[in-house]
Every structure is written in C-alpha cells, then in structure tokens.
Amino acid sequence: MSTTNIRAKKQSLSDIKVFNELIKLMKPRVMSLVIFTCAVGLLSSPIVLSVKDAMIGILFVAMGAGAAGTLNMWYEADLDKLMSRTCLRPIPRGKVNKDQALIFGLLLSIISVVSLYYFSNFLSAFLLFFTIFFYVIVYTIWLKRKTSQNIVIGGASGALPPVIGWTIATNSLSMEPLTLFLIIFIWTPSHFWALSLYKANDYKRAKIPMLPITDGIQNTKKNILIYSLLMIPTILIPYYIGFAGLTFLIPSLALTLYYNYICFNLYSFKKNKFDTNIAKHIFSYSIIYLFLIFVLFLIDKLI
C-alpha cells in the first residue's frame, strides 16, 4: 500500500471519529425521546400523513433537538469538565473543540428549522425554532446558573416535541396536544430532582443552583413528591376532554400511583437525608414511566 493510500485511510478514519463525536454532541438518548414523543403527537392527530412526509418531519425535529443539545454542550463545556456525569463528553475530552461545536450546532439549527418550514409548515418551524431558542438561551444561558427553578421553567422546551408532531400533521394548535405537553412538563422536575439528589456534589462543584443545594434535601424530597402527585390530575386531563379512553387512563393511573409510592418512600426517609437507591430508582423508573405513558396513549388512539 502506497504512502498516499495510507494517509488517505488514516484521514478517513479520523473523519469518522470526528463525525462520531459530533453525533455524541447531539445527545442521542435525548433525541430518541424527542423522536418518540414527536411521533406520538403526529400519529394522534386527526390528519393522516404519508409515511414519507411523517418521517421527513420527525427527522428535522430530531435534528433540531440535536442542535439544541450541541449548543448546550458548547456553552456548558466549562461546567461539563467539572462533573463526573458529563466529564466524558466530547468537548471536555478534547475530541471536539468549542468552535467546531458552535458551528455544528448553528448549522443544525438553521437547516432543521428552514427545512421543516419548507417540507411542512410555518407553525411547526416556528415551534422548533422556539424550542431550540428556549433550551439554549432561556434555560442553558439564563436560568441554569441563576435559579433552582431552572429545570421547572426549562422543562417547557423538552415538552414541545409532541406539540410539533401534531402541528406537522394539522398545521394548527388545540387543547389535545397541549395535554401531551403538560404530561412531560409536570413530569420533568421530579425526574431531574431525583438525579440531582445523588449527583449533588457534581452540581455543587460546578456551582449550578440545583434544588438540593439551594433549598436542602428535605425540601427537594417534598417537591419531588408534590410533582409526582400532580401527575394524577395531569393524566386525567386527556381522558376528561375526550382525547384518550380507558385503555390509556387505567394503566396510566396504576403507573402513576406506583410513582407516587416510591416518591413518598423517598420523602418519608430520615429528615434531611435520603436513600440513594430510592433516588436512583425514581430517576430510572421515571424514564420508563414516561415512555409507557406515551405508549399507552398511542395504543389507545390506535384502538
């Protein structure tokens, strides 16, 4: 093999490695949730799109979510290197530099929003733009380092994908997709505060004012329980407005009551202390819980 071919092969391998790191910047696990909830919003709408149009719309929403994740990692690179949960991300490891991440994030943002407008409609494109803007500017840059309510307010961006899925199909907004928004919005605080309990040292080191640091363990446990209980009326709303039936309601309530139970166990543990295993269980279960709620909703709509 000639020297030129060897160099070309090495360059190709290097390009693949950089590409893989850029994909990691997009937070693939978060993207998978965005894709799923967006698809549920789209499939639950009264208008049926072709498979091609649906896949194109979801692709650009996923790309927009990846853009938001990339810009989040670009801005928070200094914090990420201080936290055990995030220190192995591409920028702290030196696999991608901040300029590359910024350019990649901006390009993804522009391409996703413009393409969704071209292939779908203005309302969907605007909501995708708003989602990226809210997550990067409002949550990441403004709220995260300033208030313990960062995750409550910032959770709005993560709750918008099912609404965008609905607007891709209908080019309109109504009460129905807003119930899906509300489910994710109310779910988010208890999910992340459970994580922040057993990762409090990370957040303290990075000087991020998460609730356990600013308000203490006991108040955090109380808020986790309160938000878990708020899921009960939130789950009832789709049924109450006729957007979902008993196929959704009954198992969803059972899942929610178990969520309430484990959150109560966390709260009733020793005052100003918590059981790490329970906190981890709440965090893990909350992910499965949200996934199953949306699966049940989709099953209900298909039936």
Rank of each mutant, 00 (worst) to 15 (best):
L255Y: 03
Y239V: 11
P177W: 13
L257C: 12
N121H: 04
L25A: 05
I47T: 13
K144N: 15
S157H: 08
N171F: 01
T214Y: 10
I241G: 06
V295I: 14
W74G: 04
Y261P: 01
I16T: 03
I137L: 08
P46Q: 11
Y261H: 05
V138T: 11
W142R: 13
S50T: 00
Y267I: 12
K98P: 10
N265V: 03
D275S: 05
A68K: 13
P189F: 08
V152P: 06
P189L: 09
S50Q: 00
Y117F: 14
I153R: 05
G158P: 07
N272L: 07
N201R: 13
L107T: 08
S2N: 15
V163M: 06
A77R: 09
D300L: 09
V152G: 07
M63K: 03
L249P: 08
N121S: 03
I16L: 08
P209R: 00
I293E: 05
F185G: 05
L302A: 12
Y203W: 12
N277Q: 11
P251E: 05
R145N: 04
L123N: 07
S32D: 01
Y261W: 12
G216V: 12
M73I: 11
R205Q: 15
L71D: 13
A65E: 00
A39K: 02
G242V: 08
F60N: 03
L42H: 13
N20W: 07
I232Y: 07
L298W: 13
M231P: 05
A254N: 11
I250W: 09
N121K: 08
P28C: 10
L108T: 15
D300S: 14
Q11H: 08
Y240N: 12
V51Y: 00
A101V: 08
D80E: 14
L33K: 06
I232D: 09
P238D: 00
L71Q: 09
Q149Y: 05
T256S: 12
G242Q: 02
I208Y: 04
L246S: 15
Y117M: 01
Y117T: 00
I111D: 03
I213P: 04
I35V: 13
